[in-house]
Design a protein around this nucleic acid. Structure first.
Length: 529
RNA sequence: GUCUCCAUCGUCUAGUGGUCAGGACAUCGGGUUUUCAUCCCGGUAACAGGGGUUCGACUCCCCUUGGAGAUGCCA
């Protein structure tokens, strides 16, 4: 059977970086295997799943080049009938029951099957004894076994298990008397509605069973059935719960491999049971480690820079972000880091995915982005800069030849497109001056005199080239008794207002004679001292 | 509390019993006809702790510590 994977986000308008990483890994896996990558829009939260939010989701995927197969995508809200039908089926089979605990009406609850052996991966662990607190009566019913454990301090600690977790259950009192034995009563209690309440019990004895599966990333996984509870699948208001909807949709879409975040490992055990009880073969699972913030904590709504759109807005290239994200929690096994899509598709495998969570490193992303920008063809680079500049009020109608000259000069040092905002001095008549910098660079009397002498000297320079300017500046510095190069930074401050940039003579050539002279003569660099 | 998962430089990672524990980002120092960046060269920096198993553990097992997730009507 060919591989079919899916990305199933709930569209909220803000696609989280962790979610999109899951999408990327699914996409990579599908492309590597030559399978299908499907999209499912889990739009059950009507409040947040607006048409705009869905459009944002699709735009982000397109931006990152995450093309999906079998359009249009599956919309979860359109599947409610299937979800509910599945719930009815479970109810009819005795794999679910109605319960009113906690809700207004009756919710529907999936029962962990007592004959759990029919679930692939369920194994018998062996007999165990669990101490219980005598102050809290033990209850045994179709909803499970209720009891209180004993904490380290000897106080009652909340406990409980699904009925299937306690095969061959026997309940004992302090004097050793057997208060209850489940053997032979499974049917009457499980589906018949019988229940018993047993005060004074101190010990539970039963055969422990566990459900296991092989995780494509983490390896063998196991969970004792007695640490599981039955699962609500339909709310008391009649709406399907995530667990049901998710599994039913995966069956509908014929998903063979589920690759998702670590936070779902716990759900996997019950999802496998749901698949089997709905007559489907459980898919293979692979759980990706989470991406955490700089503090090592999971990203929350409070963390500003965790949305994909934010990275796009700050001027990261989609290929750079894509590449960087593949490196979070995965590596090709050799020292390669900067890799093309084709190389990533070729090298990707779930077995090489990390088990532990990864921290986002903005500096490394930025560095990688700089590498991608450096490789951009000149025309492409210029186009992106123009687009970016158009967002700034002084960058809206820039001269084309000036723009090209600036781009050529600055290309190698741009790491993020948002930084073109610092190019103001190339385009305006008078730049904004860094007061502290000017005070530092242009306070010396000899420097000031040399700078003043420069406008006359420079006025005579034709053509106004970097080489010619350099000669003149060197001469001016020498005439003022300044060492070679000592006038360079003061000149930069006086002409550009900043202390950083490309070579000063090249920069001045691009700025041009007229504006250079005007800035020198305006003496803002001095007035602001 | 209980259950599940996790643990190599500051960060991302390589490593599947024998390595001077490698690379990248960051950082520090030097160079590229003395800004910043690029580029080049070099340095600092890690196996969470304790027990085992073994001739020999980063690597296998156990415990502790720390972190994350789950614990019936969020997804």
């Amino acid at each position: 059977m060919s591989v079919r994977v899916r990305f199933a986000p709930s569209p909220t308008g803000h696609v989280h970086i962790g979610n999109i990483r899951a999408a990327i890994f699914n996409w990579l896996f599908a492309r590597h295997e030559g399978g299908a990558f499907l999209l499912r829009v889990e739009d059950t939260d009507l409040e947040r799943s607006t048409p705009e939010a869905i459009a944002t989701l699709l735009a982000v995927m397109e931006w990152l080049g995450l093309d999906f197969d079998e359009k249009p995508p599956l919309y979860q809200t359109a599947q409610i009938k299937r979800h509910l039908a599945a719930a009815e089926r479970l109810l009819a089979q005795g794999d679910a029951y109605r319960d009113s605990k906690g809700g207004d009406g009756e919710a529907m609850v999936f029962r962990i099957p007592f004959d759990a052996e029919r679930i692939p991966g369920v194994v018998e662990v062996g007999p165990v004894d669990v101490p219980v607190h005598p102050d809290v009566p033990v209850t045994v019913s179709g909803k499970g076994v209720g009891y209180a454990g004993v904490s380290a301090k000897g106080t009652p600690a909340p406990g409980g298990a699904c009925l299937a977790g306690c095969k061959d259950l026997q309940v004992f009192a302090a004097d050793g008397a057997c208060l209850f034995s489940l053997a032979g009563k499974e049917e009457a209690i499980g589906r018949g509605g019988d229940s018993v309440t047993l005060p004074g019990a101190v010990r539970l004895h039963f055969t422990r069973r566990a459900i296991t599966y092989h995780d494509l990333v983490k390896g063998e996984m196991s969970k004792p059935l007695d640490s599981m509870r039955d699962v609500v699948i339909v709310r008391s208001d009649g709406s399907p719960v995530f667990h049901l909807a998710n599994v039913v949709d995966d069956i509908t879409q014929g998903i063979t491999h589920i690759i998702r975040g670590d936070d779902h490992v716990e759900n996997t055990f019950r999802h496998i049971m749901l698949f089997v009880c709905l007559g489907a073969t459980p898919p293979a699972y692979g759980h990706l480690p989470m991406i955490v913030n700089a503090a090592g904590k999971p990203y929350s709504k409070r963390d500003g820079d965790a949305f994909v759109g934010d990275f796009r807005d700050r001027g990261f290239l989609p290929d750079a972000l894509f590449n960087y994200l593949t490196l979070l929690g995965w590596s090709p096994g050799d020292d390669r880091e900067k890799m093309t899509r084709a190389e990533l598709v070729e090298a990707f495998s779930l077995g090489r995915v990390q088990h532990a969570s990864a921290q986002m490193d903005l500096q490394k992303l930025t560095n990688l982005n700089g590498q991608y920008i450096a490789e951009l063809p000149e025309e492409d680079f210029i186009a992106r800069c123009r687009e970016r500049l158009a967002e700034l009020d002084w960058g809206r109608a820039v001269d084309e030849s000036l723009l090209r000259a600036v781009c050529q000069l600055m290309h190698s040092r741009l790491k993020v497109f948002a930084d073109v905002a610092q190019w103001q001095y190339f385009f305006v008549a008078l730049p904004e001056y860094d007061v502290k910098l000017c005070a530092k660079q242009c306070s010396d009397a000899a420097v000031v005199a040399a700078l003043r002498s420069l406008s006359a000297r420079l006025a005579a320079v034709t053509p106004f080239t970097a080489v010619a300017v350099e000669e003149v500046v060197a001469a001016a510095a020498a005439a003022a008794g300044l060492g070679p190069g000592k006038l360079n930074q003061p000149l930069r401050a006086a002409v550009t207002g900043t202390g950083i940039g490309a070579g000063i003579f090249e920069t001045i050539e691009v700025i041009g004679k007229a504006r250079t002279l005007a800035r020198l003569q305006a003496e803002q660099w001095l007035a602001l001292k």
